[in-house]
């Protein structure tokens, strides 16, 4: 039986072995010529090429676009206007009153996004942690519940938006339940507070499975003997959580925080389907603003959209670096 398995294994890997043998001689020649460092560059080149074509070049182009004006789409149709688009985005008579800003919708989007990030990331981390802690216990149907919590992650954001729209709209499921319970129906998505809360709740529901999985992996990597020692010392559970679980989850927390932060600043698709940015502009977030200005508006302004996205990118970089610095500092303190 082992012989058959070995034969099958060889058969399956045969094309790769053949390919490796074929490329081996030229690579050896190449390595003699470039040295080991040069070989690293060779192996990195395909990934760098993909990164360059799909990330770096668009980033540079975006920056160039942000310094052009006019209504043309191609660069050669657009005059260079320097930092004018940035000036337009940041121009305000009174920064405490958004409507005095020249691009008031940009500031509305910035404020809304800031609120969304604070509430959504906090909720996401707390809910993911609680879910991970529960799923880490030896409960019945643990595999089933893990699948249930992860399932929304597999859904397309458009599907998520539509499902919740059908639940929350005037003739939706929630109102049907409310009416059957003798309550007054509500147009949930027409209320500023409910609509904002819905965007936070829906995006948390849709993505928490992913973060739960990261935290669960962290929880399972914590050595059991630490908990056993704590149990022998009759340490209260809250102290065990604060002194063992939380500190050892630190690296996973850092990953979850950075990813959740980036994802929530970039929030767009499910919210666009769910609320369209409304009511009014109360759920207009930055990415939708950029999309509206650059693509969906009747008279589109790619330069202004590019400038807004560069500013958003800059904020994301700062937040990520800050986050990493804080988590490394915390790790360093723990190590001491």
């Amino acid at each position: 039986m082992a012989g058959l398995g070995e034969t099958l294994g060889r058969a399956a890997t045969w094309p790769f072995t053949l390919m490796a043998r074929a490329v081996d001689p030229p690579l050896r020649v190449w390595q003699r010529w470039t040295g080991t460092g040069g070989m690293a560059a060779v192996f990195l080149a395909p990934n760098l090429a993909i990164f360059g074509v799909f990330v770096l070049i668009p980033l540079v182009l975006n920056f160039v676009y942000s310094m052009t004006g006019g209504t043309g789409i191609l660069l050669d149709q657009r005059p260079f206007i320097g930092m004018e688009q940035y000036g337009r985005l940041l121009e305000c008579e009174d920064y405490t009153r958004r409507i005095t800003c020249r691009e008031d919708q940009f500031w509305t989007a910035v404020t809304n996004t800031a609120g969304f990030v604070i509430f959504q990331v906090t909720l996401m981390v707390v809910v993911s942690l609680i879910t991970a802690l529960i799923l880490n216990r030896n409960i019945r149907g643990r595999g089933f519940f893990r699948a249930v919590f992860f399932f929304p992650v597999l859904l397309s954001p458009v599907v998520v938006g539509l499902i919740w729209r059908w639940i929350l709209q005037r003739e939706g499921l929630l109102n049907l339940i409310a009416v059957n319970l003798g309550l007054e129906p509500e147009i949930w998505l027409n209320d500023r507070f409910y609509a904002f809360a819905a965007t936070i709740g829906v995006s948390t529901w849709a993505h928490m499975g992913f973060y739960t999985l990261i935290l669960l992996a962290g929880l399972q990597a914590i050595p059991r003997d630490l908990y056993e020692a704590a149990e022998m010392d009759a340490t209260p559970p809250s102290r065990v959580f604060r002194r063992i679980t939380l500190p050892l989850l630190g690296p996973n927390f850092a990953v979850v925080l950075v990813l959740a932060l980036i994802r929530s600043v970039q929030i767009f698709d499910e919210v666009y389907v769910l609320t369209g940015g409304g009511p009014g502009t109360s759920t207009l977030y930055l990415t939708q603003y950029i999309y509206e200005v650059g693509f969906a508006s009747i008279l589109r302004n790619p330069g202004l959209a590019a400038a807004a996205s560069i500013l958003m990118g800059a904020v994301l970089v700062v937040l990520t670096l800050l986050q990493l610095w804080l988590s490394r500092r915390a790790e360093g303190r723990r190590a001491r």
Binding site: Q105, Q169, N190, A195, G276, G277, T281, T283, Q288, E292
Partner: peptide, 14 residues
Amino acid sequence: LPEVWVSAAGTTYR
């Protein structure tokens, strides 16, 4: 009907 005008931002057609 508020869903048509109020429940969207920008120039979105509904």
